[in-house]
Structures are given as C-alpha cells and as structure tokens.
Simulated assay, not measured.
Amino acid sequence: MTESTTSRVLSLLNLLQTHRHWTGTELADRLRVTTRTLRRDVERLRDLGYRVESLPGAAGGYRLEAGSALPPLLLTDDEAVTMAIGLRVAATQGLTHGADTTLTALAKLEQVLPSGLRQRVNALAVTVQPLRPLYGSPNPPVSAELLGQLALACRDHERIRFGYVSGSGDETRRLVEPHALVSSDRAWFLVCWDVHRNDWRTFRADRMSDLFLTRAHFTPRELPAEDAAEFVAAAATSVPLPRNAEVVMRMPIGEMRAHFGPWARGAEPVGTDRTRWPIGGRSNEELLSALAWVPAGVEYEVRGDEEFTRFLRDTADRMVHALPA
C-alpha cells in the first residue's frame, strides 16, 4: 500500500474502533473517498486480520466484529495515556479480579509506550488517586465483562434487558434505555430510562444478572440533571438513611424544583409559597451540609429530632464564636 492508502486505512480502522456501526455513506464522507474506494479499504483491513462485517439493506453498513484473536489496536497518544491511567485506577475500583487483570494489562501497555508517554503516565499516576469509600466497606465486585457490555450499550443507544435484585431482595426483569455508567465511592451504577416504569432510574451493577442486548436502538432522552454523576448522587438521597430531617423554606415548589433540580426529589408544597424538603444522611454532619444549599435570602425552618436540633444549635454557636470580633 502507498503511504496515503496506509494512512487512510488506519483512519478507517480508527473510526470502526470508536463506533459500533457505521453506514457506508458516513464512512465514505468521513474519509472523503468514494464508496468503491471504501469497499477496497475494508478488504485491506480484512486481509490484515480485522473482521469487518458488512450489513446489507438501507440501514446497513460496516462494523468491527470480535474475532478469534485480538488484532492490534490503533491508539492516539492521548488515548494511550488515558488507558494507562484508567487501568491503574481500575485496579482499585471493585472489579472482579481487578487488581491482577488490570495490572498485567497495564504492564503490557506501558512496555510498548514511548518514553515521553511513559513519563506522562507516571506523572499523572502520582497525582491522580481514586476516592476510597467514606463509610463502610465496598459493595461486591462487578465483572469487567458486564461493565464493558453496559458501556457499549450506552454508547450505541441500544435497549437492554436484565434481571435485578433490589435492596429488599425483590427480583424483577427490566427493559431500559441505558444512558451512562457512574462509579461512586462504593458501587457502579447504570443510569437509564426504565421503559416499563416510564421514568429515569439508577441500578447497581453488582445486583444485575442475565444481561441481554436487544439490538433495538433508541433516540437518547435528555437527562433531568447536569450530568449522570449528579443524577446518581441525587437519587441516593431517596434511599433511607440513618439520620433524617426536613427543611421548610419560603419558596414555591416550582421555583424550588427549578433551583435544586434532581436534588428536589421528595419535596412537597406547603401552601402556595412554601416547600417542605426532606434531607437525609449517615450523620448529623451530612444533614448540616444540605442546609448550605438553601439559596441566600430564602427564609427556612429546620425540623428534626432532639439530637439533630441540639447538634445544629451547638454548631451554629461555634461558627459564630469562630468569626473575628
């Protein structure tokens, strides 16, 4: 192959590796070639051992199949550094056999990295540290294969079915439109649209089983939060927690929901100009932190048990005394 042809074929491989399915027209437009040239380049990849599947029909196109052997991956410098850092973090993130598998993969990757990229990886590794669980112990480990399948379904907007065991032990079958995966300090969560419940939901990956890819694609919906991580954090506030209280603020329910977004879950109107907002946490300190989010200038009243009200009063006194005279 000539240099220009080789460069084009490598560009084609990169496109096939970054998306599960491309139409022939899309690929030809991206590469600025004719569909005839595209077909020849696809054959060149097949000759090199890459299994590129052709899909017939109006919605057909090309996609990279899994083969019997792993062909070389094409990575940019930034992708290689990101992958190396990700492998280091993954070793501590509750994956099944995570430490062994990810560290051996990391060793193989760093062995072939150029010296400059290895220095970038080592510099980042010194400063990037994963967050440890703040309370209790981590949840059961999650299969890396399951996380990989979920990530692909999110990327390709493909509906999935799976079995799920709730915290109370109830077993259900779910049909969802996956949006994103989120790693919290204790578990992996799938953020998705639940088709049968007609609402957004979060599911812990370690409670999922029998994942089935339906091959039915969907148009992504707009998530009712700034991002998936915020949605997971807000959803966690609806889970029963050891410490609970409520805030009654002089703020209409509509205005309150617009300000707090997904964090307003559970809020109820009190008349026309006030809202009751339940707050929860693992400790009195966590309950206190929620009060900082009440907008400036909004009057509010805190209702809680004697332990929390005493804690709140003592903390307020300490803060006042801590101010300069």
Rank of each mutant, 00 (worst) to 15 (best):
F203Y: 07
C154P: 12
P269E: 05
T6H: 09
R44Q: 13
R51N: 15
A90V: 15
G116K: 13
Q149F: 09
R88F: 03
P269N: 07
M208L: 02
S209C: 12
N244V: 11
T214P: 03
T92E: 14
L241M: 10
S115H: 12
T92N: 05
F260W: 10
L150R: 03
L106T: 02
P242M: 05
R63N: 07
S54F: 12
T202C: 06
A216P: 06
Q93N: 12
A235N: 06
M249H: 01
Q17M: 14
M83K: 10
R174W: 07
L12S: 04
P141I: 07
A292N: 03
G57K: 06
E65Y: 09
V33I: 12
L87T: 01
A290T: 01
H97N: 14
E299Y: 05
E171C: 12
L175G: 10
E53G: 04
D29I: 05
A292Y: 06
G86N: 02
R221P: 02
H179C: 08
A264V: 07
G86E: 08
A153M: 10
D41Q: 03
A290L: 02
I279D: 01
G281M: 02
R204D: 00
D29W: 13
G261D: 06
Y50I: 08
V42L: 06
R120A: 12
R132Q: 09
D78P: 11
D78S: 15
A267Q: 04
S238M: 08
D100F: 15
D210F: 08
L38C: 02
L87P: 01
S4F: 03
A292K: 05
R243F: 06
G169V: 06
Q119M: 08
H259S: 13
L175I: 09
V191F: 00
D156Y: 13
S11F: 02
L45I: 04
R204C: 05
V126N: 10
Q149D: 11
G136F: 00
R44K: 11
D210I: 01
L75A: 08
Y135R: 12
T2C: 06
A296K: 04
P72V: 06
L27C: 07
N139M: 10
V89L: 07
Q17G: 12
S4L: 11
G98N: 05
V294K: 04
R173I: 13
V9I: 15
D227E: 09
T5A: 09
R207M: 07
V176H: 04
L106D: 06
G167T: 13
M256G: 09
S68E: 14
T172K: 12
V112P: 08
E65S: 04
R39D: 14
H196K: 12
V81Q: 04
F218D: 11
D185I: 00
P295W: 10
R88D: 13
N284E: 14
P178D: 08
T309K: 08
R159E: 12
V191E: 02
L117D: 03
N198D: 05
E230V: 15
T172G: 07
L15H: 11
I253R: 13
L190G: 01
R313D: 13
L211P: 03
S183R: 15
I160F: 00
M208W: 02
N198W: 01
C154F: 11
G148Y: 12
L70Q: 01
L147M: 15
E26N: 08
V298D: 01
V33C: 08
P269R: 07
P324S: 12
D47E: 15
V320E: 09
S54T: 15
H157G: 06
E301I: 04
V128L: 14
A90P: 14
M83H: 04
V142H: 09
G266Q: 10
M1S: 14
